[in-house]
Write a protein that binds this DNA or RNA. Structure first.
Lengths: 335, 335
DNA sequence: GGCACCGGGGTGAGCGCTCACACGGGCGCG
DNA sequence: CGCGCCCGTGTGAGCGCTCACCCCGGTGCC
């Protein structure tokens, strides 16, 4: 075993197969003009030596690393992590590696650090699971030599060169949820909105407003956490319950359900609740939660496709994926 | 602007600063013997040119990519995603990049593909969020030229060179949960176990058995999903309720709570429930769930530390982190 | 028969960096 | 005063690959 010494290089394979290093390269890159028997000889030498192409050398000369950098918030939240998984799978299909950087804060500094991190690494493209307006502004301010795709529903991403944007149509999802509640006969629908510096929160609010109309009550702004929903739920019980609530995500809805259950308020009889995300477990909340599902697999594919288009020099418009309503017990009054 | 042409190289910086490329390299690598004024001149040239060190070239010559490969299941499950986040943060602290590969199945083929993927990329080390025995066996069968750390509670990982293992002490956590229920005065504790090809499930079962003793009723094996817990809960209601249940994860517990709530069984009055994971939202289940929390940040640091030790040639034993019990309403009978 | 052309394959340069080593000058010390 | 040593810096090789180009021999066509 010479395992520890130095991994085999292309020249070693070439020597063993009795060809030039260039022929080995041709075999590796599926170049057509190699005789089948030569190809086979090379392939066997590769196997025998346990040869693996050195990607650093390849990257050095081609100036392409085949790596996609993904910036994601440092949380185990359902949306971002699902998006990450979707991205990884889509990237792998087209032969890209995925490198990850998490950020704790969405300020310009963190974003700048993360981008530098990736650019120094030589990624070919960057995807940013970028929820807040602040992030978007930070991105816009940084001149990236590689294409960047912003994954968010941002309806108003500033038009920056190299900056694409894809997302699930949050507004559409919010319309579905709100309309569903209205269709159930609830006279009006209160919206518990997420932090308004998040695009998703903005768009869910906008979708709700489109359907509920100008006469609807004001929305209530909250965070994303179940604790926020819980506090709010308790306050509602004290100050008066609406007929129906559209919560900006499932965690908020979960907190509301908790508060209502604790206070003896029945859902959906006393108040109907709809969430957003269809988190793992949402089908087993008490009661099972009506919510809006996003196709993160499709989202990942869309993001990757968008980057590929960017490489090809195409100027892709913003692309959106429709959302899907999942109706469960929390919004359907028993007859 | 010559931006599109070719990114500036070390030699460009050197020319601008009036030094040799080697001096630039020394500045970049914080080599002590550079005069402060020279250093400053170089630094300024770097800034002026927007120079970024080409990591491919660096990797090529040093044979170190500074990249950690992480293999993780392709799910948004709380445990794996939290571990991933913990790993990324720990890796970044020591200056490593994190590259991710997700796998859908835990068979040897998938693992082999993922490892080849990383080895071809030239990672310096690999962390495997490796839940099943099958994965561990697959790893053991692959000779990796770089250190591999298995992140799992596996008590019986086969001793393979270069294969380290770290984890949260699942058995300890299970003992805490079970003992807590016994301390509350519940005569016996039924365990709803996870899939027994998962290390975590095995160890949680083992910990439960250690405390509950041989006289305890048989455990019930299930999956990891809330749906499994729900089915089981319904069956328990039909066939007879235990006094207390220790579920192998929070999702199972959530399903149980759902079934019980639906059937009018009160928790914890009729049956107490404890979960495992302390997922986001567990504090707002109905009722709030007593569960076992794992410190994923510490886990990531431990894994990274273990790899660093491997680089240093140390032969590190398996390392475990204690778990922590979080008591909430689902297991505490109201007085 | 001469020439173009194409399949199959080889040669050499160079990507941008680090490493080993060389080199000159100042300083301490015998 | 001479020698050695260290500080600060430069020189050149080479990491393993791809790209541009060259070369040779067989085939088809005028």
């Amino acid at each position: 075993m010479n395992s520890a010494a130095r991994p085999p290089a292309m020249s070693d394979v070439a020597a063993l197969a009795g060809v030039s290093h260039q022929t080995v390269s041709r075999v590796l890159n599926d170049h057509p003009s190699v005789r089948p028997e030569t190809r086979e000889r090379v392939t066997e030498a590769i196997l025998q030596l346990g040869y693996r192409r050195n990607s650093a050398a390849r990257t050095l000369v081609t100036r392409r690393s085949g790596t996609l950098g993904v910036v994601t918030p440092a949380t185990a939240l359902y949306g971002p992590t699902s998006t990450l998984v979707g991205l990884e799978e889509a990237a792998r299909v087209v032969g890209w590696f995925v490198s990850v950087a998490t950020i704790r804060q969405f300020d310009g500094d963190s974003m700048h650090t993360a981008l530098e991190h990736f650019l120094g690494q030589g990624v070919d493209g960057i995807a940013i699971i970028a929820p807040t307006t602040e992030v978007a502004q930070a991105i816009a301010a940084i001149a990236s030599p590689v294409p960047v795709v912003l994954i968010s529903s941002a309806s108003d991403v500033p038009p920056v060169p190299h900056l694409h944007a894809v997302g699930v149509d949050q507004r559409h999802g919010a319309r579905l949820a709100t309309q569903h509640l209205l269709d159930q006969g609830f006279p009006d629908v209160v919206h518990v909105a997420g932090p308004q510096d998040w695009f998703d929160a903005q768009d869910r609010l906008a979708g709700w407003r489109e359907v509920s109309g100008p006469g609807a009550p004001e929305h209530i702004e909250a965070g994303w956490d179940a604790a926020d929903g819980y506090e709010l739920g308790l306050r509602m019980v004290r100050e008066g319950l609406p007929a129906a609530i559209f919560a900006a995500n499932d965690q908020l809805a979960l907190g509301l359900l908790h508060a209502f259950w604790e206070q003896g308020v029945r859902v959906p009889d006393d108040v109907a609740v709809v969430g957003f995300d269809d988190e793992v477990g949402a089908a087993h909340y008490t009661p099972p939660l009506t919510t809006v599902r996003q196709d993160f697999g499709a989202l990942g594919r869309l993001a990757v496709g968008s980057l590929q288009a960017a490489f090809a020099g195409e100027d892709v418009a913003r692309q959106q994926i429709p959302a899907e309503l999942v109706v469960r017990a929390s919004s359907v009054r028993r007859v």
